[in-house]
Design a protein around this nucleic acid. Structure first.
Lengths: 242, 242
DNA sequence: CGTGGATTTGAGAGAAATCAAATCATGTGG
DNA sequence: CCACATGATTTGATTTCTCTCAAATCCACG
């Protein structure tokens, strides 16, 4: 059981890091507690002290912050294999919420276990550090997206990014991927109103760039979509070398 | 000479981390090469491979990304004691520019030296990791700022944040701090046009919240400004414990 | 087959951008 | 010490993208 949980983790980390057999075996010995969450359930609250990290085994989660007047901004979307609150290992107090986008299966890993592992296996520690740095790189691109791109560009960029990240962990089939997210939530990601999200999607559909069937996004013209969103994947740091 | 460079570093890291005497002495042995940069000079380019990290000893630098059509978004402002490109230690290829906001003095630290130090002193490695995590936390708040706040709120928040960070390293006097930045650059930080920045500043001045004399910002009504900007410093993680 | 959430459509309002130009420093060289 | 160049700030007028408000439709599920 713990094996299947660590499987997604190893696969994800291997995308951006070179792990040797010993590293992988060590990761597989991590004590991971399986737990299910319902869609929209808050997993960890802003301000809360965290004592464990959450590995996404199945489903999607997101991180978000809200203003005092109740406006919500989604900061990142997370896919299987990722540890969205890995930062809590050294930043005990949460500065944002961690929320289940869909019903999902998480693997809870005690901080203690991770710290012990990092102390003994510097190569793994470096890989985890690197994961948090890629996380930060995606935040930087997110700032650019929200700050400097039009609604259509933002959406095109987000979809291009999600396709690329999902592909890296084998969660696409062709140019199609599953991402159960409402238009209101897309608006919270992109700092757009729900109404505008709807019109933006219509425009992308009208231009033959995408097709949406339920939770399935089909990038009919991937190159065109990436161009529209000014998408350049180098900020994802998807190869172990770079 | 290397002493004065590492001084700022030790002071800054000590704000958010508990360093013992041995840690401090180790940091002071780091080989650091002093180098001056002119205002607006690009220190490291997006796409470039970095082999050293830049410690800000004196002056200010910023990180930015640009869209293909030439729109610039400033991602972060950095003050003395910070290492704005610490991420390059594990993310060799830059995903953004590092630019001198003012003329400044940097201390260049070879990646090699940092990696050797991290391997031997896990406490320092954890502290540096934590610094990059705080960096990411500030990005998250930056996303919220740009995505969900009005122009006036964004400006109030940015000024509140800079005051708080500068205070932590002893670079304020009362409610006044020096930050030589143009209104166009403030616009690039906040995703606002220069014209709008100007009007926003007038509003804050008109409400008696701030006063600006050249590069000196005086927060006449700090509490009022923080309230206007919905500023809550917990995301800065300024105490070693949390 | 009703029900509530999600999507879609229409119309009007608003925050901020853009365009254009004036004013205000700041610093340089004659 | 002043004329001039350059960059920064300020002001005014207009435009535009996106939001808000409101309501209709669609759809999945019990």
């Amino acid at each position: 059981m713990a094996g299947t949980l660590s499987e997604a983790l190893v696969r994800k980390i291997s995308v951006s890091n070179r792990l040797d057999r010993a590293d992988i075996e060590t990761l597989q010995t991590l004590p991971i507690q399986r737990r299910e969450f319902r869609a929209r359930e808050i997993i960890v609250h802003d301000g809360q002290r965290a004592t464990q990290c959450c590995l996404v085994a199945e489903g999607f989660v997101f991180r978000s912050k809200s203003t005092p007047d109740g406006q919500r901004q989604i900061l990142s979307l997370h896919i299987p294999g990722e540890i969205p609150d890995l930062q809590s290992l050294h930043l005990g107090i949460m500065d944002h919420d961690l929320v289940a986008l869909t019903s999902c299966t998480l693997g809870l890993i005690p901080h203690e276990a991770l710290k012990r592992m990092n102390a003994v296996f510097p190569n793994i520690a470096a890989a985890l550090w690197r994961e948090t740095l890629i996380d930060a790189s995606i935040f930087r691109e997110w700032i650019l997206n929200v700050g400097r791109r039009t609604g259509v560009q933002r959406m095109a960029h987000l979809l291009s990014e999600m396709r690329r990240r999902l592909e890296a962990v084998g969660r696409t089939s062709g140019e199609t991927f599953r991402l159960p997210i409402t238009q209101a939530e897309l608006g919270d990601c992109l700092a757009l109103s729900t109404v505008h999200v709807n019109r933006v999607l219509q425009e992308l559909r009208g231009d033959g760039l995408i097709e949406i069937d339920r939770a399935a996004f089909n990038l009919l013209d991937r190159a065109g979509l990436e161009e529209r969103g000014q998408f350049d994947p180098h900020y994802l740091h998807l190869t172990p070398s770079a």
